[in-house]
Design a protein around this nucleic acid. Structure first.
Length: 574
DNA sequence: GCCGTTTTCGGCCCGACTGTTTTCAGTCG
């Protein structure tokens, strides 16, 4: 049972209780526990085995007992009892915009509606006409909501949302009267997926700015257009179709608004609690004591007034940032990255030559790159047979002679085979400057097997980094079970890096896993796995992920000098 | 249900918008 499975059970309990009319604090409590579980980097089975469940913040005696019950028996009796009163199938109704627990409860109690299909049927039959709170406009909205849910819904990957967000920011910046535009919301926090895009701007002519915004060519539908707020759906012609909210604020309230709209919700709840303890209140306009404004213009002032250091947006998840005594100014940045150690060329499944990749990397200011085409087992990816790799090494050495201003290293992305052996002999690996070991074909659902295979690869003296360790593809394939603490420990002991694969479909390791890895002493390598010269652009997503894992540059091998990376490789081989 | 330099009991975040029941409950971010 994965952390996500356990968290899911408690999210369901919270929803069921809420529909049942339970008081909100108890509901919130279950939800907080569920979130704490899904945020865990460590495997909850291991934590339970160590008897440390109740030590997790937000989990007390009662929840700990239910987790144990779930892990041991596969069920939580309490959840089953609740589900007898309100069927689990009703929970999907909560996903419809503007449908909350009260309305769902009413639908179920009065009309027996217990699923999306049943709701659709009830609407088509006109069965809801006499139901309190379900007037014609509400019915229309629900109908649209069901369509929305069935069509796309869900969240957009950071790597798809980011270019659209940048384009919109540039468009808004050019509008008359706009003095400053910034991203807010989960995009600013660097989350791996984002729901809608939040833009915030300073201007005194709000209505004009909103009018310009809601008539941009990429607008498909205008959802709201007031004096300070506009909301649109983009047409998806060039980039993803997304909801974009723009808010216009005067400069003197910008900090409060930026803080507020950046979130996360959980971070903001904590922050407001701290304000309340002082007899103050915090909202999107200001931090105030009654009528008196204490801070509003900048985020720094607001945090400072609450005796907190300014918190980088990537850390605003209520994952320990309130214990910070000072702003961490040393989180890794894109500017710290000196090279990339995982990329492909036309020799396997890449689109550009060695030289073209090198030129593109040099243009980014990189000091070194390592060419790591696929190994022989990856047949569909054009993996190289040993002889082909030998010739490729020669080609890389020759390119290194020709291209100035950047070091080009010879490497390989070597498959880890079923038994944990590598796809090339050690003799051949010894000729390479850097070896990426990858699980492509043999990641399954057996945690112990996955772990043993990874450990065997890590212990090979020629392996320098374990690539995309969990094999997840965001929204498509979940992370395979692994004993990450054991892997991180072995990586630390052997001098092997773990990868944060920056490709936006992967972002693997993810934020919390990266944090866990460095806590166990491992170092990381943030690589783009570029198959194209534009693939290097994705470094920003990998760096954001690392920052969300509280990672500092010295913990990332490709922020090091070429000499230091060479010493890292030499030390393991010795 | 959780938690503690306010507390082992009694607290636990805030404002806007919307539809509609026409004075406010429900939902959202």
């Amino acid at each position: 049972m994965t952390n996500a499975d356990v968290a899911q059970a408690f999210f369901e309990i919270a929803d069921l209780l809420e529909i049942g009319g339970e008081k909100s604090f108890r509901v919130t409590s279950y939800r907080r526990a569920a979130r704490a579980i899904s945020d865990l980097a460590d495997d909850i089975t291991d934590i339970a085995a160590r008897g440390e469940l109740a030590a997790i913040e937000g989990i007390g005696k009662s929840t700990a007992a239910k987790i144990t019950e779930l892990l041991e028996t596969g069920r939580v009796a309490y959840r089953d009892e609740l589900a007898e009163k309100v069927p689990l199938s009703t929970l999907e109704l909560l996903k419809i915009p503007n449908m909350g627990p009260k309305k769902v409860a009413l639908l179920f109690r009065e009309k027996g509606v217990d699923s999306l299909t049943a709701l659709q049927q009830a609407i088509d039959d006109g069965a809801l006409a006499d139901l309190k709170g379900f007037g014609p406009k509400s019915i229309d909205k629900i109908r649209e909501g069901i369509d929305f849910l069935r069509k796309a819904a869900g969240r957009t990957r950071l790597g798809q949302a980011w270019p659209l967000a940048e384009r919109l920011r540039a468009l808004v910046a050019e509008m008359p009267g706009v003095q400053r535009v910034e991203h807010a919301g989960s995009l600013r926090r660097g989350r791996e997926t984002v729901g809608d895009l939040d833009l915030l701007c300073i201007a005194d002519n709000g209505a004009e700015v909103i009018a310009a915004f809601t008539t941009l060519p990429l607008v498909d539908k205008v959802l709201a257009a007031g004096d300070t707020k506009g909301s649109i759906l983009t047409d998806g012609a060039d980039g993803p179709a997304m909801q974009i909210d723009l808010r216009v604020v005067p400069a003197q309230h910008f900090g409060a608004a930026w803080q507020y709209f950046t979130g996360s919700k959980e971070h903001n709840v904590r922050l407001r609690e701290l304000a309340v303890r002082r007899g103050w209140s915090l909202n999107e306009y200001s931090l105030s004591e009654g009528e008196k404004i204490i801070a509003a213009a900048t985020e720094e002032e607001i945090y400072a007034a609450l005796e907190l250091p300014w918190v980088p947006p990537e850390l605003r998840e209520d994952r320990g940032e309130f214990d910070l005594r000072a702003t961490p100014t040393d989180l890794v940045t894109v500017a710290d990255i000196r090279g990339d150690l995982h990329m492909h060329t036309t020799a396997s499944d890449g689109r550009f030559s060695i030289e073209e990749m090198a030129e593109a990397a040099r243009a980014r200011g990189y000091a070194y790159i390592c060419i790591t085409d696929h190994s022989q087992s990856s047949v569909v990816a054009g993996g190289l047979k040993p002889d082909a790799l030998r010739r490729h090494i020669e080609a890389i050495r020759a390119a290194n002679e020709r291209v100035d201003g950047i070091e080009i290293w010879a490497g390989s992305e070597v498959d880890i085979l079923a038994d944990g052996q590598l796809d090339y002999d050690d003799d051949l690996l010894a000729e390479l400057d850097w070896v990426v070991a990858s699980n492509h074909h043999y990641l399954h659902d057996d945690r112990d097997e996955n772990t043993q295979r990874a450990l065997r690869a890590i212990r090979n003296p020629y392996v320098n980094v374990l690539a995309h360790p969990t094999g997840r593809m965001i929204g498509r394939r979940s992370a395979k079970p692994l004993d990450l603490p054991a892997i991180a420990q072995a990586a630390a002991e052997t001098g092997t890096a773990l990868e944060i694969n920056a490709a936006h479909q992967r972002l693997d390791l993810k934020d919390q896993h990266a944090r866990l890895a460095v806590e166990h002493g491992a170092v990381l390598s943030i690589n783009c796995d570029a198959h194209h010269i534009e693939g290097f652009e994705q470094i920003v997503y990998g760096v954001l992920t690392a920052r969300r894992g509280w990672i500092r540059p010295e913990q990332v091998v490709n922020t090091w000098t070429a000499e230091k990376v060479r010493a890292f490789v030499a030390a393991k081989r010795a």
